[in-house]
Design a protein around this nucleic acid. Structure first.
Lengths: 229, 229
DNA sequence: CAGTGGTCTAGACCACACG
DNA sequence: GTGTGGTCTAGACCACTGA
């Protein structure tokens, strides 16, 4: 199918394709799903199926450690609340199970397309200078928390990547349907010998290639395609 | 379903589950597929469905650069051939389109389970000391290539992670069915100002959490579970 | 061999985009 | 309203595991 259609852009609809290949539509859809998982196709309900452009490389790890909210940060703060985090987050932060932490929501946009949604958990101990009157909520408060974070000296950070599926909220933010495959990047920021913040970022798996640059500057464009079996 | 069955280990079969929830088996399977994608379930044909253990964290990036095949390397060389690589690999290596390169196959095993399969492409210029009589093929030759690689001074490395699906060969090596979701880690090793080697490693997405440690030593066990929407 | 998950079919209806 | 992809059904058969 790829060789037959890659020249064009728009594919025939699923019913026609199924008929052309002599299979049931469910079977045809299974093949399309795999191709979409590999980033070769894009499908939009009510619109159609198109050949996807190469995945965009998004940098998620730099050789220089930097707090979220630094000058060159690509994330856009959206909101901030004070809430008790999920148990797993509390554990990673080594905070009490019922301690409320600042929860910053941010989003990341590339080429006009949303690529990631993030939840950043910041224990209150990490931002002692934050005054209640700064801002009650909203983007202003998110920026205030990030600003206070810069005062700590960052000692290190560690990240993990795993496969997940988009929750309803994330799905809407990423312009996908719930259950869509996502790459979840969890990053622990270390300062003063403890976890000073925890970021859980959800990237669209269909359009993103996460890069962990390590050579300092040399950017390489590389097709995600792999050897045929 | 999770809260109902997480205590036990083995789930009822799909036909029974579908009947219990009053849905068709295809619908039930769709739900199981998503849970498997998230690493919560493991399904094996002919056996059954079980609640999955937490994902294992596998380190794929270290703060110290190191060549493949270093003393502490966790990969096991399996084979080595001299072949013309796929076009995309040749491009990343900045080698001619028709230049044959050493192609080392390696596998990675953790806790007795295969977690990744790798193809390591090494241009002949990167291992000038390799003599033809060293070993014609097989693991011995793979080790010879890796040994010669150590002679170069590694200047940096850059990695990218993206979602893919297992080819037939990879699937067998990873003990999965073709099409299973995998995390593809592409790493370029830089020496003497050029790409001296390219690694394409395929990790099982269902069982692996890829860690990019950056703090040097502190290992943290962390549940992959995320906030409920 | 029986039981499991994996694949496939033929059809119906739903949710959404766009003219 | 029409056409698209997304969901669901009820049933059949296949491939594999393990007793």
């Amino acid at each position: 199918m790829e060789s037959e259609f890659s020249v064009g852009e728009i594919l025939p609809n699923e019913r026609d394709l199924a008929a052309r290949f002599g299979v049931a539509r469910a079977t045809l859809r299974q093949a399309l799903e795999q191709l979409e998982l590999e980033g070769r196709l894009q499908r939009r309900r009510g619109v159609g199926t198109t050949v996807a452009p190469p995945r965009v490389g998004v940098a998620v790890g730099t050789e220089q450690h930097a707090w979220p909210g630094s000058a060159d940060d690509v994330w856009q703060p959206a909101d901030c609340t004070l809430a008790v985090p999920p148990a797993t987050v509390a554990q990673a932060l080594e905070s009490g199970r019922d301690d409320a932490v600042h929860t910053v929501r941010r989003s990341r946009v590339t080429h006009g397309q949303p690529v990631a949604a993030e939840l950043l958990y910041v224990p209150r101990e990490s931002v002692p200078g934050l005054t209640a009157i700064d801002a009650p909520s909203g983007p202003a408060r998110a920026r205030a928390v990030l600003r206070e974070l810069q005062h700590l000296e960052l000692e290190g950070q560690e990240s993990a990547v795993e496969l997940g599926s988009a929750r309803a909220g994330e799905a809407k933010e990423l312009d996908r349907l719930p259950g869509a495959p996502v790459l979840v990047v969890t990053t622990r920021y270390i300062a003063e010998g403890r976890a000073a913040a925890l970021s859980v970022a959800t990237y669209r798996a269909d359009t993103c290639r996460l890069t962990f640059g390590d050579t300092g500057g040399v950017v390489v464009h590389q097709d995600p395609e792999r050897r045929a079996s």
